[in-house]
Each structure stands twice: as structure tokens, then as C-alpha cells.
Design a protein around this nucleic acid. Sequence first.
RNA 1: GGCCCCAUGGUCAAGCGGUUAAGACACCGCCCUUUCACGGCGGAAACGGGAGUUCGAUUCUCCCUGGGGUCACCA
Length: 549
Amino acid sequence: MDYKKLASLLFSHVTETPEETEARFPRRNLPEGAKVTRIAPSPTGFVHFGNLFPALVSERLAHQSGGIFLLRIEDTDEKRKVEGAVELILSAFRHYELGFDEGALANEEGFGNYGPYYQSLRAHVYHVFAKQLVEQGLAYPCFCTHEELEASHSAQEAAKVTPGYWGEWATCRDLSLEEIEEKLASGMSYTLRLKSPGKPGGRIRFTDTIKGDLELDENFTDAVLLKSDGIPTYHFAHAVDDHLMRVTHVVRGEEWLSTLPLHVQLFDLLGFRRPKYVHIAHLMKRTEDGGKRKLSKRHDPEAALSFYQESGYPVEGVREYVMSVLNSNFEEWRRANPALDMKEFPFSIKKMSASGALFDLNKLDDISKNILALRSAEEMYNDLLAWAKTYDAEFASRLEQDPAYAKAYLGIGRGGEKPRKDFARLSELPQAMAFFYDDLYKVEDELPENEAVRADAREILSRYSALYSADDDRDTWFDKIRTMGEEMGYAARPKDYKQNPDAFRGHVGDISAVLRLAVTGRKNSPDLYDVMQVLGYERVANRLNQDLF
RNA sequence: GGCCCCAUGGUCAAGCGGUUAAGACACCGCCCUUUCACGGCGGAAACGGGAGUUCGAUUCUCCCUGGGGUCACCA
């Protein structure tokens, strides 16, 4: 077989040599030890929460070492392409502060010297190397139809042999040049397959950065390199792109472990130096029956990255949660360095777990609560407003209508040694703060169980409303409540009541409970004095004077 | 099913041949407290099973079991 002739037959349009192509993607001039990483999503219109893991690992690895973090769009599958998907990807990564040094932009080839960063725009590059493989007798056209492939696949299953295009099943492998010319002339479409030098039973050794030493079956199937439309499969594109873009560390999910033998083989056959692989374990989700599975786009709302933005989880909360799963010593570091930027944390591949973690919403909530608790009222207002503008326009307009008022109630319990930690996500705020607005205020809880208190509720309100004054400081404010309670037969201290319940109708806490219910409509609230201060005299007086109980 | 990965409390996990087997989240109790939240103290809770190596295995090896992944002209 004259491979040269076959190659020029198949790739007459390719004028560049591999050497020339290599020259267009020169070795990067980076400091010693600098890592080049990439994140390579498919524009499917859905950004998975799990994408954050390899992304954060890649970003940290690159930027911690003075290297390059790039974005490449793997849009080689026409069927899965979705309009606007790249914008979605871009905005998601921007939101989570994963800044790219080069890569794709929406509707553009991208920025940087190793583009284009859309695989669909790189066909000519892949063809250079495809042609080279054909010339070397390492790739050949395959004219098999889907039906034929399916048939041989089921035959293989019936015969219990490894499925795939290999051995006697690789019917196009040894086509003569004449046969190929004939088929081409008749207009048959074809894929370009690798002529794998691997043998069944062969083994390869490999070291993964996380998993360690692996011994895997050698690839011996003739995988498709170029689809019939001339666009490469993931495998071929991965080898060519990651080599040409001079990527040093390929960070991806462990589902790629099974195709690693093919990838390694491609790098070797193409004469490329193998990158380091970092296969990270999947984030799992507990199932109803107690098992585990991958977080699923179909079944789990939290699988979508957009879920966290909609919920109003703080960006740092999500980032820190992901980091704490990635490097378990992160939490310890964070406690020791509460004020440092997360980027100061010495992230380490070695600390990454080889096993898949179960998604833990509790943990995320805890981390988020701690972060939101440290926000100032001003910061909280800004965050909340930004969130509400896209997810709760009604609330946003309330915030904008009276920013000072909003900041006042957002400031309750903030600052100081023990800030309140009651919110994990911003989406909890509109509901929690509703009672600060008269039109949203309503009594939604019940009076205390205590019969005497229920009977006295009306009187408590009317007596207190006569005593209430705008300029009471915290102590006089509470003195009034306590004294009033005592006059009505309520213990000044809950302890006194507990020790001798028969001597009192209730205790000062019960008085507060009634007032709290009238003022906030709820049985639980932040500090009542603070709340009343923020609400202001008029609102409070109105609520106290309602005909409530 | 073949191949591969994984395996310490409910969850995330320290540990890397000898430990009373850390810590965090969640849970429970007590304290603080006019409610809630916070905070403090305490509690329950783990090395999947079996061989082997060794004076000694959570730690090393093998087998089993269990969980997960993958077997496309999808990535």
C-alpha cells in the first residue's frame, strides 16, 4: 500500500506539514515549573456543578505556578451544540472568579496565540496530523455504515468478545488503494480510523497524578479519529490540542480513565510528549435507596451551577466548599487565616482524595453562613440588591426605594464578636425581612401555649403601647417591659417562674413573646429592641395598636 | 459481563506498622439567653469481611464483598 498516495488522496487540501504547524504553536516561554492547564467544556447549554472541580483545580494549578489557564470549547459534536451556550459558560466561570489567561470568547475565536479556541474552527490543524498518520500507515478510511457497525457490535456481544473495531471486525482496515479509490469515487462517506498497533492482552503502565500507578489494557481498537464530517472525535482533538496548546496538566473527571490507553497511544504515535494527567473523582449524590450516584442533571436541581446563583449562595461560599472537598486541609487553613484571600491557600494535588465525595449541602450552608455573617450591612445590601435584581425584582425595588432603611435592618446582629449566622443564601432574605415592610407584614405565628398569657395578650399590648416611647435606650426599654410584667403577675426572670410556676401567670419572656408577635408577626426574630429601633416609632405603635388578639 | 477506580463515624476526612483512631458538618444533651441565631461545655458515632506478611496491622499484599465509572462517527 502506498500510504503517501492515500494520504494525498484523502487530504489533498492539507498544505501545511506537521513541522510547520508545530512552529505556529511554539513552546511557551514560561518560568520553570509553570503549569499550563485548561478547561474544555462542551457548549451543551448546561453548566454542571461538577465542572467547578476540574476548573478550580486547573485554575489554581496554573496560577499558583505562574502558568496559563485557558478555555477551549469542545464543540465537535454538532448535535449537542446549543445557542448561547458559550456565553453561559463564560458568565459562569466569570461569576466564580475563574479567570482565563487565554481562550475562547463568545462568538469569537478567542484571545491568545494558540487559537482558535473552538475545536470546530481547528479542522485544518487536525487534518495536518491526520494526514501524517495516514502517511505512516497508522490511520485509514473506514466506509462502514452505522448499520454495519451495529451488526458487528451485536455479533461481538453474542460471541462474547471485546466489542469494537478491531481484528477480523475491522473490515476496512486492509482495503486496497484501488478499493478505497473506488469507494471514494462512488461518493461514500467515511471516517478516519486509527490503525492501532495495540494487541489484545497487551498492557500499559501509567502514572496518574491522583490515582497513582495504573496498569491498564492496551488499546487495540481502531478508534475513530475524524468523523465523516471531518471533525475530530474528542480523543484525537484532545491529543492534538493539548499538545499544540502546550498544556502540561490535563485535569478532568475520572470517567476518562477508561479511554486513557487510547489517549496515551495517540500521543505516542503522534510523537507528542504525554501531558501529566490529573483524574479527579466525581462528586456523588445520595440516592433514595441509600446508594450513591453522580449528581445528575435530570434529577438534581443542585447539579446545575445556575442553582447556586439563583439561591444566592455567596461566590466565596461555593468556591470554599469546592476547595474544602478538593483539599480537606483547606478548612483548617481557613480557620487559621480567616482574613486571607482563598488564593493564598497552598492548594496541593497530593492532598486530593482518590475517592468521590458525597455532595453535602449542610456543609455548603455552614460555610456560606459563616461568610455571610461576616459581611457588613453595606456589603450585604449590595450583594442582596445585585442578586434581587435578577431573581426577585419586586424585592430589589424595595431595596432601592429606601437603601438606608434596608441597610438598617440588614445591620441587625451584624458586626461584633458574635455575629448572627442565620442565612446561607440570599434567597432567604426577602422572606426573612418581609415584616420590615408594612404591606408584607402579617401575623403568621401563634401566641404562646400558656393559657394565662393568651388571656392577657390584649392587655399586654394595650398597656405596653401606652408605655412605649421612641427614645428609650435598651435598658429602660427592657425595664418597662419587666416592670409592666411584674405588675401583671409575671416573673421578672424566667428562672423565678420555673422554680415556682404557681406563683406567676408567666414570665417576662412571655410578655416579650406577645410583643414580638405583634411587632414582627413572628414568634422568632432578631433582637426585639433592635428591630423596633429600625422599624421606628410609628410602625411599631401602629402594630401595637392593632386589634390583634 | 470485560476492564478500571474507590473503601476510616450519617457526611467530608486526618492517619501513612505501635495513637485513649484527630478535626469539621450534621445529630443529641446541658449551659448562656426575653425568642431565634450566636457562643461555651459534653455526648453518641468509624477502620466492610477473610487470609497472609510482621513481635505487632486502620496502615503492606492477595481474595471476597460493596459502591462507582466505562465499553459511540458523545464529550
